[in-house]
Design a protein around this nucleic acid. Sequence first.
DNA 1: CCATACATACATCCTTGTATGTATGTAAGT
DNA 2: ACTTACATACATACAAGGATGTATGTATGG
Lengths: 205, 205
Amino acid sequence: MVRKTKEEAAATRLQLLDAAERLFSEKGVSHTSLHEIALAAGLTRGAIYWHFEDKGDLLKAMWERVALPIHDAICSSNTNKLDPLTLIRSKVCWMADHIEEDPRIFALMNIVMLRCEFTDETRSARDHFLHERETCQRHLLADFDTAIATGALPPHTNAEHAMQGIFGLVDGICFHWLIQPQAFCIRQVTHSSVDCFLAGLQRSR
Amino acid sequence: MVRKTKEEAAATRLQLLDAAERLFSEKGVSHTSLHEIALAAGLTRGAIYWHFEDKGDLLKAMWERVALPIHDAICSSNTNKLDPLTLIRSKVCWMADHIEEDPRIFALMNIVMLRCEFTDETRSARDHFLHERETCQRHLLADFDTAIATGALPPHTNAEHAMQGIFGLVDGICFHWLIQPQAFCIRQVTHSSVDCFLAGLQRSR
DNA sequence: CCATACATACATCCTTGTATGTATGTAAGT
DNA sequence: ACTTACATACATACAAGGATGTATGTATGG
């Protein structure tokens, strides 16, 4: 059955992205062949090579599709007029709050942290990831600056260290949870750890 | 040149481990062939198959060689009679204090976090890693219990959450640093973040 | 003389990339 | 309205290169 209309082609593309997402997350990027992906989507490699340049391009496309909402959540401006620390808390806990429910986010983080070698093959996807990561860090840094400026954090606070620390904290917990999801509740541990870290910032001398 | 004596054979084995360590860290585990490893060690695949069962076994052996000192550092008993929080601090900062100097530790963490897909091929090595990881966590948990029992931390402290949090913190910072080593000083950020986290624990209600 | 410690040779299986085939949608011409 | 022609959206076929595992060769130590 050859698909013809643009809508059907777009649907095919999504099927391929779905299959790639699932297989990459289950078996690892380099251990998944394009043949397997096409098969899982009920297609052939011809479809993949029509929609994507190669495996790296497919990975990148899959990556971009999921990374967008994550990026938006963390880089969103303070529309609700939350106080600075509450804003930071809600942003950095976003991942832990959604990774259990949203299989797509789970798959992305699983691929990034456990199922993907950072190498030439994944370079373009990785560059995209790093670029978004930097944007998130800049926004978070600005949020810390605001918190310091408004007195929510003491004036001597090192915003750069605070940002790197809290970012590492949530990613590290996520990393451990992905390795052993049954070991602990990522939501609880992330929330209490973030609260603890922010409390430590507030009361530092 | 065929090597004969047991000492020479042992040296050959170490050469293979060295080559594997370097290439795995540079190119990723699945993107490094046994042929490349043998070539880098000035040998052939025959030598690898003599000393190891397959790629997974080689990875596991390489892993065990480096993981041991890390394990010892974190699971060591409190011989210096440090106060509980200082002990915890020194243990969890050990990695950040050594990863820049020791290329072997750098390679191991780089492989674990960025250059290795957690999949069937790496299963035996991963299981070993997870087992040591659990041992470290148990020791660290005991250290937190001691800290609570001696009053260094408030009695209502959740030791399990604290352990997961601080472990995630240092691993997450390590993860980010490996992705972009030039972005920040891992030692500084780790130390200040750990201090901050422990301060938060101390002054929590 | 036998086991060790490799090197070499061989067969098989994948995987990738590309080239080609093909059926349909679509737009233009008449 | 009907044909023509071309682009689209794949499927199929082909060629080439690795990578792995194993089988065999071989030189030396003990």
